[in-house]
Simulated scan of single mutants.
Amino acid sequence: MSAKTRLPVGQEAIQLKGWFNAHRFLLLRRLSQAFFLLLFLLGPWFGIWWVVGTLAGSRTFEVLPLTDPLVLAQSIVAGHLPEVTALVGAVIVLAVYALIGGRVYCSWVCPINPITDAAHWLHERLGLQKGWQPKRTTRFWILGTVLLVSAITGTVAWELINPITMLHRGLIFGMGFVWALVVAIFLFDLVVSRRGWCSHICPVGAFYSLVGTKSVLRVSAVNRVDCDDCMDCYAVCPENHVISPALKGKDGETPLILSPDCTNCGRCIDVCSVDVFAFTHRYDNRAKKTVSTAVDAATEQAA
């Protein structure tokens, strides 16, 4: 183990870039999550009805309809014909997340994400074991089950137990049982399965990963030749299996993180002291070349 890997995660980035620059995307994510949640609470709490509805379905300024495509899909398989506004709202949401990355919803919008992040932080602080790790395909099986149950029962099945929707309702009508659900998810990630809920269980994350399969916004290990193997990016990434293909790729192989599992959270950018990672688009395959490759290219040009 190198001296750098023994440092606390992100400590070197804080020393070299400053605390703010080593946490900027984390802070922006928290502001984004709070912003979207507050938009929906302005009406019930303060009588300011800019947005009416929930993340499942809403109308902004009485003009812009937005519909959760997963809710719409459950409604359709349940045998309910959607209204035109619901279809339009779902198309808008699908287009946005198909462009910026489906699982951006998970890291920048979902109000459950701060809860699971807090569980992971405490898990690491307490030095707990990794715990049970379901297969990553588990969430897709759960997604399929949700649609099947909706078709059989004629209901929008997941919304009956969806912690995102229940948390929203709890903040308006009183938390009550919702606290038990929130605590259950926290404890599940803390002591049962590290990062288990978002990475292995949640069907919403599974759905949005499918939506973002060909998304344009991507993280790139553009300066991967500068990597000092501190492993901080792996430590903070909620889906750290997506890093290696881009970071450890050879010259000529794409530095882009193309896996739809990537949440575009930006934490790898935050904690990297040598600025290996950056946001870019899926058509940007540029990567800083190794010294030997650069020398070879110069030699060929001179010849």
Rank of each mutant, 00 (worst) to 15 (best):
M1W: 14
K4R: 11
K4T: 01
T5D: 15
L7S: 12
G10P: 08
E12V: 04
Q15G: 14
L16M: 07
G18C: 04
W19H: 06
F20I: 07
F20T: 04
F20C: 10
N21F: 11
N21V: 09
L28Y: 15
R30Q: 13
L39E: 04
P44M: 00
W45H: 08
F46R: 15
A56R: 12
A56P: 11
S58H: 01
R59K: 05
L66D: 00
T67R: 10
S75C: 04
I76S: 02
V77F: 14
A78K: 03
G79M: 09
G79W: 09
A86V: 01
L87F: 00
G89K: 02
G89N: 12
L94P: 07
V96S: 01
A98I: 04
A98Q: 05
S107P: 11
V109R: 06
I115N: 05
T116D: 12
D117I: 10
A119C: 00
W121K: 09
W121Q: 06
W121D: 03
H123K: 00
R125H: 08
L126R: 11
L128Q: 03
Q129S: 14
K130S: 10
Q133L: 07
L143C: 09
V146R: 10
L148D: 01
A151N: 04
A151L: 13
T153K: 14
A157H: 05
A157K: 09
A157Y: 01
W158G: 11
I161Y: 00
L167T: 10
H168L: 09
R169H: 04
G170V: 00
G170Y: 08
F173N: 08
W179D: 00
W179R: 01
A180Q: 10
A180N: 07
L181F: 02
A184Q: 03
A184C: 04
I185T: 12
F188E: 05
F188N: 04
V192Q: 03
R194E: 11
H200C: 05
V204T: 09
V216T: 09
V216S: 14
V216E: 15
R218K: 04
A221G: 12
V222K: 09
V222R: 10
V222F: 12
V222E: 14
V225H: 09
D228R: 01
D232P: 06
Y234R: 12
A235C: 07
V236A: 01
V236D: 09
C237N: 05
E239W: 02
E239A: 12
H241R: 15
H241M: 06
I243T: 02
S244H: 07
P245M: 10
P245V: 13
A246M: 04
K248P: 08
G252S: 07
T254N: 10
L256E: 03
I257T: 02
L258Y: 09
L258N: 13
S259A: 11
T263H: 06
C265F: 02
C268P: 06
D270I: 12
V271E: 14
C272I: 04
S273R: 08
V274M: 12
T280F: 07
R286G: 11
K288V: 07
V291F: 15
S292Q: 15
V295Q: 11
